[in-house]
């Protein structure tokens, strides 16, 4: 039998983590409990974060939007500040798992699992998310690109937990786009996904483009060359086609059972073309 601790406040959390340094932390259980099921041997002590209200906060803080790591996908998805202002994130979360998984899984879980196919991650990359970490004694904050170091690898020290992410104030994006290609329409793991933020001039010229892809590399991937290729040009099939080409070169997908690397590379570029339809 494993110990299961449900700290009710942060003080109890630090105590639990100090008393059981080997303990595994989880919130929704949709990743960790699935992995533990496949593991032989005695289960580790578990610390469940679901009761920590401090981690479930969604609020504006000094011009930033703070999304608590313990907030469930459903909670974030339904929050007016996300629904209305961050459709790129809302669409990604709506495509994640299933209603039950969205009711259980949390943003922090998606971050710490750090799968290149994590559905919430490409939007967080283009939104310039910073990850807030806390421990009993201190806190630190780092860009998501530094927090996530590789598949399943994150910059998290012993005694630290993810408190949430901070999203800088929206910078007047004309177009927010998310598309996920899966093997089916629900309960699907992304074969490729794309999050895009575009700011266009009144003439339809791209002033800024931010692009991030899921499932085409060890982490969510950006392609600065592709972003640069769009900048200063009218949004259309010509510019997007060129960006698609450059993106295909920049990404480093692998073959797996779900799709080949060449399919992922091709489709990652193709997904940009969809932006032509979505001209603002």
């Amino acid at each position: 039998m494993a110990k299961v601790i449900l700290p009710a406040d942060m003080g109890q959390l630090w105590e639990a983590m100090e008393a059981h340094p080997e303990a595994r932390l989880y919130a929704g259980g949709t990743d960790l409990l699935v992995r533990l099921r496949a593991q032989a041997g005695p289960p580790p002590a578990l610390v469940c974060l679901e009761r920590l209200e401090e981690l479930r906060i969604i609020e504006e803080r000094g011009g930033e939007l703070f999304l608590g790591a313990g907030a469930t996908h459903a909670q974030i998805l339904e929050h007016p500040k996300v629904r209305g202002r961050l459709p790129v994130l809302a669409r990604a979360l709506a495509s994640l798992g299933s209603p039950q998984v969205r009711n259980m899984g949390t943003l922090g879980g998606n971050l710490v699992t750090a799968s290149p196919a994590g559905d919430s991650l490409p939007p967080l990359y283009v939104l310039g998310a910073e990850v807030q970490l806390i421990s009993r004694k201190a806190g630190r904050r780092l860009p998501i690109t530094e927090f996530i170091k590789g598949p399943g690898r994150v910059d998290l020290n012993p005694g630290e937990v993810v408190a949430g992410v901070c999203l800088p104030k929206s910078e007047g994006w004309t177009l927010q786009h998310f598309e996920k290609v899966g093997r089916r329409d629900a309960l699907a793991i992304a074969l490729v996904s794309l999050a895009a933020l575009l700011r266009l001039s009144s003439e339809g010229v791209v002033e800024e483009a931010r692009l991030a892809w899921g499932s085409v590399g060890p982490t969510v991937m950006r392609a600065p060359q592709a972003e640069a290729a769009l900048k200063g040009r009218p949004l259309g099939l010509a510019s997007l086609g060129e960006a698609a080409e450059l993106a295909g070169q920049a990404l480093t997908p692998i073959d797996d059972l779900r799709a080949s690397a060449s399919y992922r590379r091709r489709v990652a570029g193709n997904l940009l073309l969809r932006l032509a339809e979505r001209e603002a």
């Binding site: 299933s98 093997r183 089916r184 329409d185 629900a186 309960l187 699907a188 793991i189 059972l257």
Partner: peptide, 16 residues
């Protein structure tokens, strides 16, 4: 078996 479970063996959902 390379598709050992319902995560890897894909059957249609209500949306499909």
């Amino acid at each position: 078996v390379l598709s050992p479970d319902l995560a890897t063996y894909i059957i249609p959902t209500a949306l499909d």
